[in-house]
Structures are given as structure tokens and as C-alpha cells.
Amino acid sequence: MDQIARRDQRTLALQRAVSFLFFPIVAPIAFFWARVVKRLSVRDADTVRARFAELMNAEPGPVLICSNHLTLLDTIIIVWALAPLPSYLWHYSRFPWSVPEKANFSTWFWRVASFLGKCVYVTRGGPREEVKRTLEKIAYLLRSGELVSIFPEGGRSRTERVDTENFTYGVGQIAQAVPEARVLCIYLRGRMQDGYTDSPHTGDEYSVTLEMLHPRTEATGLRGARDLATQIIHKLADMEDRYFADRERSGRPSIA
């Protein structure tokens, strides 16, 4: 078991418990916002959910979710796409933890929302000890059977596509810390999503594809982290290429 302070273990356990208790209130609000207010939809959601269940049940062990990032609400769409909301009450470990930038949650409202949304903050470029502590928390959560979701690009892509040039290597450090972890790569994109925005476009239909990756490297240290992060980002870029190829060929991309 990972060595994180008992205080951190207790805090994470408390956060999980409180988040679980509030899930029946918070999740429908988020769903209402997505489904009714924004009129968003996930194309062939049943197929996506079946694929998710198949991949999760294929083998035991930690799973790290890595997806592309174009809107601030991608996590909500991912949660919605992967499983019916009530099912999370039975498999709450599948409601993924997120790792947002701390500076983005300065108001009390977003602090509470992120606490209930199972967020563990990270400070990009912060003190080594603080970053290390966050990394240890993530490793602990993964080894405890919790899903953790991160955006390996380190932010919303400014290039409209998966940015294979300017991505961070933090995801590689996580993969190094938990080498047995599988990486569930998720590519999601709304048909109207031409570039990065704060919120998805109203009425947009999202395509979501899933692929499992087992990143491996012989390298260690920073070089190993870079290698693993590169494998993950290139997998997402491949998924994106297929998305656009399908969209161009058939007018509609294939799913799951």
C-alpha cells in the first residue's frame, strides 16, 4: 500500500463518503444542466457504456482515465457517457476522481463543488513536496480501486486537436508510480466543438470512444515519465485521427 499520511487517507475517505452522500443531489443537477439546459447528448450512449463495462471487467487492477480536453465540463460528459448515473451508487469507485489545477477553484462554491466531485487539487509548477504529495494521493487512490481521471495535455488544447507538442509529463509520473495501472484513453468531441471553449455548445451531440492502453517503458526518471506520457498522448491523437477520418467518410464518426 502506498505510504501516504494517515491524515491524507482519512481526508480522502471522508471526501469520498461525503461525495457519495451528496451524489443523489449533485449528479441529477449536473445531468439536468447537461441534458435539459444545454441539450447535450451522447451518441449511442448504451454502446459506450457497454464498452466501458467490458474494458473495466476484462482484468482487475488500477485504471487511470486519460482524455482529450476541450471544455471545462468534459468530466461531467465523461461521467455521463460511461455509465447510467444510478449505477454509480453501486459502483462509486467508478465515479472518477479528478485532478484539477488548484488555482481554478478559488471561490467557495467551486471549492465545495470540487470536493463533492471527488477532486484532488494539483498546483502546476508548485513546490516539489506538494506535487509529490498529490502524486502519492493519486497512486493511493488508484491502488485502492478508485478510478482517477486526468487530462494529459495539462489543459484545454489550444490547437483544436490533441496537442502532441505541448503536453505535460505529469501523467507519465503517475503511470511510473503505478506501473501496473492500465490507462483508459477516452476521446470525446461534440460535433460543434471546433476548438476549446469554457462550456460545450448548446445542443451538441458528443461522440465518445474508449481504448485501453498498457503504457510501458524501460527508461526511468524524467525520461521514463516523458516516454509514458508520449505513448498516452499519441494514443489519444490516433483516436482523434480515426474520429475525423470516420466523420469525413460517413458524416458520422464510429463510436466506442
Binding site: 509548477g125 495539462g154 505541448n166 503536453f167 509529463y169 524524467l222 516523458r226
Partner: peptide, 11 residues
Amino acid sequence: VNSARLVDIVL
């Protein structure tokens, strides 16, 4: 320099 590229520079 992009902070994410510091690792590349060190390597």
C-alpha cells in the same frame, strides 16, 4: 520557455 518543456531541456 513553456514550463512543460523544462523537462525536455533538462533531458
